[in-house]
Simulated scan of single mutants.
Amino acid sequence: MLSIATWNINSVRLRMPIVERFIKEQSPDILCLQEIKCQEHQFPFEAFRALGYEHFAIHGQKGYHGVATVGKVPFRDFSKHDWQDNGEARHIGVELTDPAHQGVIVENVYVPAGGDIPDREQNVKFGQKLDFFERMTRWADAIDRPTLIVGDFNVAPLESDVWSHKQLLKVVSHTPLEVETLQRFMDAHGWDDIGRQHIPDPERYFSWWSYRSKDRKANDRGRRLDHMWASPELARQATGHSVHEYARDWEKPSDHVPLITEFDL
């Protein structure tokens, strides 16, 4: 068995106490973090080692973005793509190397949010987000290994992935153009959406709630921005998937919550 978690942590050093709490409660074999907001030399390696994580792949930058994959099982750096095409640290890929899971690829990605205006001409950030997905799509066309891609995609594609489909149709993260662009990425490799395999549409499934909401539980204005997608052969080996929504209520939380998928490999 192998358990893999993904979590946009929104500063790993600031939120190390809740990362530690999550690890002690769930103990995933691999944890993929996005938005670590630190350079590699600033990453809290010793805190993770004290929790049993000895393997690291870090792609960081000062103060912004950044991704990290940590593991109790061994892996090697496999890929580091600049799908933003501007040097930002938004991706790291690893290949598992232990005999039980050898050859499985885990790609960890933080897709740009895309700004506030869903128009390429008026908002450069929105165009960068669409271009990011197009570069990912070309990459996915050539995948020939069992691959899991996880992270903050910053798109909630289904109507049941948002608190109000009607009210969010013109809001960045749920616009038809973003959904269509994400679908092209899915089709390029034939990815299986593991989350929706285990929590079928139209069941409620959110992974992010804005800090601006005064009463998150009462309003429940969530979106499913975080995803775990797998190659078809790997997806068939997924035995469970869980959304750890309670972490949104911990002290000094991230605005995202962790997801875990278990595999029988």
Rank of each mutant, 00 (worst) to 15 (best):
L2H: 08
I4L: 13
N10V: 06
V12N: 03
L14V: 12
L14Y: 06
I18R: 13
V19E: 05
V19T: 15
V19P: 02
E25G: 09
E25F: 07
Q26I: 10
P28V: 12
D29G: 07
L31F: 04
C32H: 05
C32A: 15
L33G: 09
Q34G: 13
Q34I: 08
K37M: 08
H41N: 12
Q42L: 11
E46H: 15
A47V: 07
R49M: 05
A50N: 07
L51N: 11
L51Q: 13
Y53T: 07
F56G: 08
F56E: 04
I58W: 01
K62I: 14
Y64S: 08
A68G: 01
A68W: 03
V73S: 00
F75C: 02
F75Y: 02
F75W: 02
R76C: 11
K80V: 02
N86I: 09
N86W: 04
G93A: 15
V94Q: 09
L96D: 00
T97F: 04
D98L: 01
P99E: 09
I105S: 05
V106M: 10
V109F: 09
V109Q: 04
V109S: 10
V111G: 01
G115P: 11
D116Y: 12
E121R: 15
V124S: 07
K125Q: 03
K125I: 02
Q128W: 10
D131Y: 03
F132A: 02
F133D: 02
E134K: 11
E134H: 13
M136T: 00
T137D: 11
T137Q: 12
A140N: 07
T147K: 10
I149M: 15
F153K: 02
N154K: 01
N154Q: 04
N154Y: 09
S160K: 05
D161C: 02
S164E: 10
S164R: 05
H165D: 15
K166A: 14
Q167S: 12
L168W: 05
L169E: 15
K170W: 08
V171H: 12
S173T: 09
T175C: 08
P176Q: 04
P176F: 02
V179C: 06
D187G: 04
A188W: 06
A188V: 06
A188M: 11
H189G: 07
G190Y: 08
D193N: 01
I194Y: 05
P200L: 07
D201T: 11
D201V: 11
P202E: 06
E203F: 04
E203N: 11
E203H: 08
Y205P: 00
W209G: 08
W209L: 06
S213I: 14
K214A: 13
D215E: 13
D215I: 11
D220T: 00
R221M: 14
R223Y: 14
R223H: 12
R224A: 03
R224S: 04
D226G: 01
M228V: 14
P232H: 04
L234Q: 02
S242Q: 14
E245L: 10
Y246P: 00
A247H: 00
A247W: 00
R248V: 06
D249S: 06
W250N: 06
K252A: 09
D255C: 06
H256D: 02
D264P: 05
D264T: 14
D264F: 06
